[in-house]
Amino acid sequence: MSGNGNAAATAEENSPKMRVIRVGTRKSQLARIQTDSVVATLKASYPGLQFEIIAMSTTGDKILDTALSKIGEKSLFTKELEHALEKNEVDLVVHSLKDLPTVLPPGFTIGAICKRENPHDAVVFHPKFVGKTLETLPEKSVVGTSSLRRAAQLQRKFPHLEFRSIRGNLNTRLRKLDEQQEFSAIILATAGLQRMGWHNRVGQILHPEECMYAVGQGALGVEVRAKDQDILDLVGVLHDPETLLRCIAERAFLRHLEGGCSVPVAVHTAMKDGQLYLTGGVWSLDGSDSIQETMQATIHVPAQHEDGPEDDPQLVGITARNIPRGPQLAAQNLGISLANLLLSKGAKNILDVARQLNDAH
């Protein structure tokens, strides 16, 4: 009898209710805020589980004197976190989706994509230029951005401005803007500013005609071990179906173009009346040469937790077992079709030249 009692006690200790789920994140304040929001949602869904947040620095956090596009290494903000995932030191990792490459290392998958916040870019102005827009900034004003995508589009749109690289986390960039006289304004992701509670610093939100956004911008991705079915089931509740389908289309477009950090590629997606609209573009580094096109596809946005595919093969690095396969494939095909259209119009040449120029500098 006593033996059975011990077995029952052991089973209770090993039951999922007692389990601590370890969540990996970057150390920056924004990353911690984003991770806290994901953990809060998981806690609400699984009140019996405990969650421990483990923060670590990544290569991208450490190399702050070089433009991201020049470092010449993929997975700048993800490699150390993936290493911890691989060694079973954490069970899942919360990322900004735009930091996750469209091809993940073997053994990993994006197990959830959370509801997207505003994906557009924002302009934050130096205190002396508050009330201005990019259009009304004085001639030769210097605007800071760490992104080739932003610089290429904005140089084309605002030729009277000069664009220079600015690195560091959000706090560091804002301090550089406010305390030094080098920059009249800087460009940042609206979602990051909003998550930090800095709505009052948003001086201008850039519309798609001015600057399309990065693939996955404004959404959070939760990376897990691809074979860890328990954790895949656990994080599945975080999937937002519309965000998922938009981001599958965007990531398929980028992957098929073979774009990345070192080339200016941008997108804009919208879901309306059962249609998914995808606009994508590529630019030369100075913005003088560009190709942009829009395509659409009829896609039914499923309700969360309709029964999805059981075999769960990944699409552009994403596993969404609780979302039907048909809409996911339709979104992926839309991204591939748009990429093929741009490639047929000469996108590869623009991107190759951009890559060579970026590598040469």
Rank of each mutant, 00 (worst) to 15 (best):
Q275W: 03
T133D: 13
R150V: 06
S284W: 05
H207N: 05
A226N: 04
S344Q: 07
L238H: 00
Q181N: 06
R149S: 03
D228K: 03
S288R: 03
D61L: 13
M271Q: 09
E82G: 04
L342S: 08
R325L: 14
V103K: 13
R251C: 05
Q217K: 05
A360W: 02
L285E: 04
I63R: 11
G346V: 08
V282L: 05
T133Q: 06
S96M: 05
R325A: 09
A112S: 09
E310I: 03
S284L: 01
D289N: 07
L177R: 04
V301Y: 09
E250M: 00
T294Q: 00
R167H: 07
I291W: 08
G221K: 01
K87V: 06
Q50E: 15
Q155E: 09
A330P: 06
A151M: 04
S344A: 01
L42F: 09
L64S: 07
T145D: 02
I53Y: 13
I318K: 15
H83S: 12
P327N: 02
K98D: 00
A40H: 08
K87Q: 14
V237Q: 04
L254M: 09
E210S: 05
G192N: 02
S284A: 15
G317D: 13
Q296L: 13
L137W: 02
R173T: 01
H160A: 05
A331L: 03
F108R: 14
A330N: 13
S147T: 05
A44P: 06
V301A: 12
I71S: 08
T58A: 09
Q292C: 12
E179Y: 11
Y213S: 04
T279K: 04
R321H: 11
R195H: 11
E179H: 08
D178A: 07
F253N: 01
P302T: 14
R321C: 04
L49G: 12
S57H: 04
I318L: 05
G203C: 13
I110C: 09
L137Q: 06
F163D: 04
M196T: 06
V93K: 00
L134K: 01
Q229S: 04
K74A: 09
G335D: 07
P119N: 05
K157M: 12
E310N: 00
T102W: 00
L343I: 02
D121P: 03
E73K: 10
G60Q: 07
L177A: 05
L177T: 06
E86M: 10
R173M: 01
C247R: 03
Q292Y: 06
L343C: 07
G287F: 04
C261Q: 03
L351E: 14
L278Q: 15
G326P: 12
E52V: 12
S262Q: 07
D286Q: 11
S69P: 13
S96I: 01
T298W: 12
G236S: 12
T190F: 01
S96W: 00
V215S: 14
A360R: 06
M212Q: 03
V90N: 04
M212P: 02
V222I: 15
N340A: 04
E209Q: 15
E223G: 08
N169Q: 04
G60H: 03
S165R: 08
G335K: 02
V94F: 04
S290R: 06
L343W: 15
L329C: 00
A151Y: 09
L177C: 07
W198D: 09
E52A: 14
I110S: 01
I205W: 00
W283L: 03
C261L: 00
P101K: 00
